[in-house]
Design a protein around this nucleic acid. Structure first.
Length: 414
RNA sequence: GGGGGGAUUCCCGAGCGGUCAAAGGGGCCUGACUGUAAAUCAGGUGGCUCUGCCUUCGAAGGUUCGAAUCCUUCUCCCCCCA
């Protein structure tokens, strides 16, 4: 996976912290040379607003960007409102359906809100790439196309894989890296940040800049954070993500479900702590002197604190310990009011949002996944899918699976 | 343009006239164990008014007592040749 390496040479301390989470900076020495000029650099980061939510995986590069901003450099954000309509083929096993302009616009708004949690947007330049890509005419497109060869494009892992497997590759997809590179030309980027899988796209930007008579940008790539499953790159569509907007308690819990093996990566990429601390934790984990569970709890607290605040993180941790380590009922349990008393259990579970379908509810009940917490700590397993649930349950707590709870409040009519 | 192959339940992938709601694996869910980790074990995984009924096998028609399986047309994908 992502290795912990910082470009050779340069002032270790500052550069080290500037590049926490970075996998590589290239070409060699370029970034150091730029930094040595002592002027604020134009640091570019592009985002295609293809989904409404950003998650921890996106935050890796954003943290890098934040560090550049804090060091006094000029952040230049590109909202890829045009490129989003094509779709970045990077990491895609299949072509994806294009988005409409209005979907993109809606996503872009929520993106900026979320970016504001990490970046000082008032000090950032924000561009939409439709500004220059939309009006481009065929002559311009052809000029761009002339910058790359078929062999170069096919050299890319994912294109090559898809091609070999006999999957479709749209011609417009091949154009994508060139468009991203054009963005660098338009905003005269000194540095572009991106995920480790963006290497190719970042390099294309350099080529286009050179052709346009500009100094080619330095590129910094960041590690790809694996999802909560510990294997696949974090992604909402796989369902292994943690959204930045995730509530504190849930966020804490999701971090705790990450497999131990992924911990070092998560510390490097998601903790947003200093280089020294990260190194120390990784070393202790490797040496066995730090219990993985404790390292994970520290991490979970750090992450929640990062996107909410320290107080919320403390509360989330208490709730977690109480619920999962002491196996007590959670403190906050939603009340079900006006629930249809007398209704059979399975449909009731659906009504209360605790099961997806009646059949699903039946399965849960049959398999002993549905319990009712009565007075004085009594627990009763409800095993009859169609047993009627009457008003005598008021005040009791219904538990489905490990984490779904509801307290019976005022009953309504069935 | 010519020839060939293919589209199956969340994914991969069997099935090739009835015994198919459809093998197997993955994922996911529930239970046991536990550190909401890993590994492991057991069960489940279309819907419903659930020992039965209804809807699914790219789309629409057709043959048949009966079709995911046969025929026709259509849509999409891939390969080879040009």
């Amino acid at each position: 996976m992502a290795r912990w390496q910082v470009p050779a040479g340069g002032a270790v301390g500052a550069l080290d912290d500037l590049l926490v989470g970075a996998v590589d900076a290239f070409p060699r020495g370029r970034l150091e040379a730029l930094l040595a000029q002592g002027r604020p650099l134009r640091v570019k980061l592009g985002f295609d607003p293809t989904k409404p939510d950003l998650h921890l995986g996106h935050a890796v590069v954003l943290e890098g960007l934040r560090r550049f901003q804090q060091a006094g450099h000029q952040v230049v954000l590109i909202i890829g409102d045009f490129t989003a309509r094509i779709g970045d083929p990077t990491g895609k096993e299949a072509a994806r359906p294009p988005l409409t302009a209005s979907e993109v616009a809606a996503n872009a708004r929520t993106y900026l809100e979320q970016l504001g949690r990490m970046i000082d947007l008032d000090k950032a330049e924000i561009h939409h790439n439709a500004t220059w890509l939309e009006p481009m005419d065929l002559a311009g497109v052809l000029r761009l196309l002339g910058q790359a060869t078929v062999a170069q494009m096919l050299a890319r892992d994912n294109f090559a894989r898809r091609h070999e497997r006999g999957d479709a590759i749209g011609l417009h997809e091949l154009l994508y890296p060139l468009l991203q590179g054009q963005d660098s030309v338009e905003i005269r980027a000194d540095v572009e940040l991106g995920g480790d899988d963006q290497r190719f796209n970042l390099l294309v930007g350099r080529d286009l800049q050179a052709t346009a008579g500009q100094e080619p940008q330095a590129c910094v790539t960041y590690g790809l954070l694996v999802g909560t499953d510990g294997h696949e790159k974090m992604s909402k569509s796989i369902g292994n993500d943690i959204p930045l907007t995730c509530p504190p308690e849930d966020m804490y819990g999701r971090v705790m479900s990450v497999p131990d093996a992924a911990l070092p990566d998560w510390w490097r990429l998601a903790s947003a702590r200093g280089a020294d601390e990260v190194r120390a934790v990784c070393a202790d984990l490797a040496a066995g002197s730090l219990h993985p569970r404790d390292a994970k709890m520290r991490l979970a607290r750090a992450i929640v604190a990062r996107f909410h605040d320290a107080e919320a993180a403390g509360i989330a941790e208490e709730a977690f310990v109480r619920r999962f380590q002491e196996r007590a009922l959670p403190l906050e349990i939603p009340d079900a009011d006006a629930w249809p008393a007398g209704m059979p259990l399975s449909p009731l579970l659906v009504k209360l949002g605790l099961a997806a379908t009646t059949s699903d509810a039946r399965r849960l009940v049959t398999q002993g996944g549905v319990r009712c917490h009565g007075p004085e700590g009594t627990v009763e397993t409800l095993g009859e899918p169609m047993m009627p649930v009457g008003p005598e349950r008021v005040g009791q707590i219904l538990q489905v699976g490990k984490r779904r709870f509801v307290r019976f409040g005022r009953p309504g009519t069935a």
